[in-house]
Every structure is written in C-alpha cells, then in structure tokens.
C-alpha cells in the first residue's frame, strides 16, 4: 500500500470514528432545546401527553377556589406549612396575581376581570424540561409514557441545580426538616427529609389508581381540566381547540403543559351549559 493511500485511509477512518463519537456525544448531551423547527405538529406520539387547562373564566377574585385547590394538594402530599416564613416555604401549587404569573407579557391596560386575579401556578410538566437536563444524578426525569416530570427523593443530592434551571419557580427545597410542620400527616403518601427538592407530580400516585389530580378533584365545575393531549377527543384538547389559552413563558422553548384560558368570562354564556352561567358571571365580574 503506498503512503498516500494509507494516509487517506487513516484520515477516513479517523473521520468515521470522530463522526460516530461526535453524534454519540451530541445524543448523550441531549436535545439542544429551543429550535422552533423541531416542534412536532402534534405532541410526540405513542404514549399519553398529560396536560392541564386552568379555566380562568371560572375562577373568582376572592381566591376561595384557589385556596381550596392548594389545601387539597398540600394535604394529600404532606407539604409542610411554614406560615409566614417565606425562607423555608415549600409549595407544590400556589397563587400569584395574574400579572405576576404572566410577567413577561407586561400587560398595561389589562381587561378588568383579570387585574390582580389570583392565578394558580404549579409545575408545568414541560415537554422539554430544563430541570431534568441539569440534574447530575437523574433524580428528576420526564416520564416518556405520559410526560410527567418525576422526582426521586431518595436519589436527590440536594444540589438545587434543578431549582436554578426552572424558569417557573415550581420547585422547592427542604431547607429544614419538614415533618414537624405537617398539620395532619397522611399515611398513604411519603414525607420528605431535609436536604431534598420536591414539586408537583401531577398526582401520579392518584392517576395510577385511576383518579384525577387533587386540585382537579377540589373543583366542582371543570375550573381545572386534566387529560391527554394525544387523545383528540379529550376534554383538554376540545377546550384548547375552542378557546384562547396561554402558557407561561413559552418563548423559552420549554413547552409547558399547563394552559390558562384567558377569554372574557362572558363567553361562558355561549359555551357552557346555561345552568352554570349566572353564578360564574357574578363571581368573575368585579
């Protein structure tokens, strides 16, 4: 074999190895993230894509329903109550006014019924979650079968990188032992120890038993609707097809799966059964 041919073969071989290594590395590093072109027309097929639609038209300004949802969730999941102690606070679902929830929208002359409206916030169970990507121990991950972003409290090392990476403030860290701060510990759900991160899991333990998330159960009239976006006949798909719904910071490419219907409550008259209208309208118009 003459020298130049050997040289060529060496280079070709090395290039092949390099290309294979490179693509493996890229695959290992993971989906780069935000390219709009990569957005599938339909949510990724195969499994389910669980999502939540919060129908803000049906929430009042008094925060009563919001409080009921938070209580139901935090009680079911042994989330400690630190009262006014903001430093140690743990929350899986909580309320902010509408303007802070959608802070990047910079609403100026906001429709009156939305001004200061208590709005529920929780983990968005992103399709492209930045929190799972940064976890150094795979203690948090997106479940491919249904898109739920899960947590393993026995593996978490408490580095809090996931909290840093989450643009939604959805994760909490146990700065201190949470157990003394539980009002009524539930035996059917684990408590946590100090030093680990926790967050909403879309009540995967209730879903496994055929139930609905606790916050959804706390609602009386489809104020929060939960379901599978991959099922074209699902209630969530129908609501999204028929109403204007927004998500928090979609521009970051995280593909959040919690939607907020922001239409005028008066549209309830046209879309909902007649019986619901008067109560809802009274509640929502301030």
């Amino acid at each position: 074999m003459d020298a130049s041919r050997r040289g060529f073969l060496t280079i070709a071989g090395l290039s092949l190895v390099g290309a294979a290594g490179g693509s493996t590395l890229i695959a290992a590093i993971g989906e780069p993230g935000t390219a709009v072109e990569s957005l599938p027309a339909e949510p990724p097929g195969g499994g389910r894509r669980l999502a939540m639609v919060i129908d803000l038209r049906k929430f009042g300004h008094d925060g009563e329903l919001v409080e009921r949802c938070i209580r139901a969730c935090h009680r079911a999941h042994n989330v400690p109550d630190f009262g006014a102690d903001r430093k140690n606070e743990i929350k899986w679902i909580w309320a902010e006014d509408f303007e802070s929830t959608f802070r990047d929208e910079e609403f100026r002359y906001l429709r009156r019924d939305l001004q200061g409206k208590p709005t529920l916030l929780l983990c968005n169970h992103c399709d492209n979650p930045p929190c799972t990507r940064v976890c150094p121990t795979k203690a948090t991950w997106r479940r491919p079968a249904d898109g739920i972003v899960m947590m393993d409290w026995h593996r978490c090392i408490g580095c809090r990188y996931c909290i840093v990476a989450c643009p939604y403030g959805s994760r909490s860290f146990n700065w201190t032992d949470p157990r003394p701060h539980l009002e009524s510990p539930q035996a059917d759900f684990p408590t946590r120890t100090r030093g680990v991160v926790e967050k909403c899991t879309f009540c995967e333990e209730l879903l496994a038993r055929g139930g609905q998330p606790a916050c959804v159960e706390a609602c009386a009239d489809d104020e929060i609707v939960f379901g599978d976006l991959n099922d074209p006949g699902s209630k969530v798909r129908r609501l999204l097809a028929e109403h204007l719904a927004i998500r928090r910071q979609p521009g970051l490419g995280t593909r959040p799966e919690v939607y907020y219907i922001v239409e005028d409550p008066r549209t309830l008259a046209e879309t909902a059964p007649a019986a619901v209208v008067p109560g809802a309208a009274e509640n929502d118009h301030v």
């Binding site: 590395l25 290992a28 993971g30 940064v134 150094p136 121990t137 203690a139 090392i157 860290f173």
Partner: peptide, 26 residues
C-alpha cells in the same frame, strides 16, 4: 458543604448524567 444530602454525593458518579454540566464539572 452546599449539598443538601452530602452523604449521597457519589450519586453523581453512580448515575452519571452527561446532560448535566455539574457532572462534567465533577
């Protein structure tokens, strides 16, 4: 000293995660 669960620190190597910059930093 920044870890919430320092006893589990070796999880970084027991469950290596190339997508995490913290793994690469270690």
């Amino acid at each position: 000293v920044d870890m919430g669960m320092p006893a589990r620190i070796l999880n970084i190597f027991l469950h290596p995660t190339p997508s995490s910059m913290m793994f690469w930093d270690a």
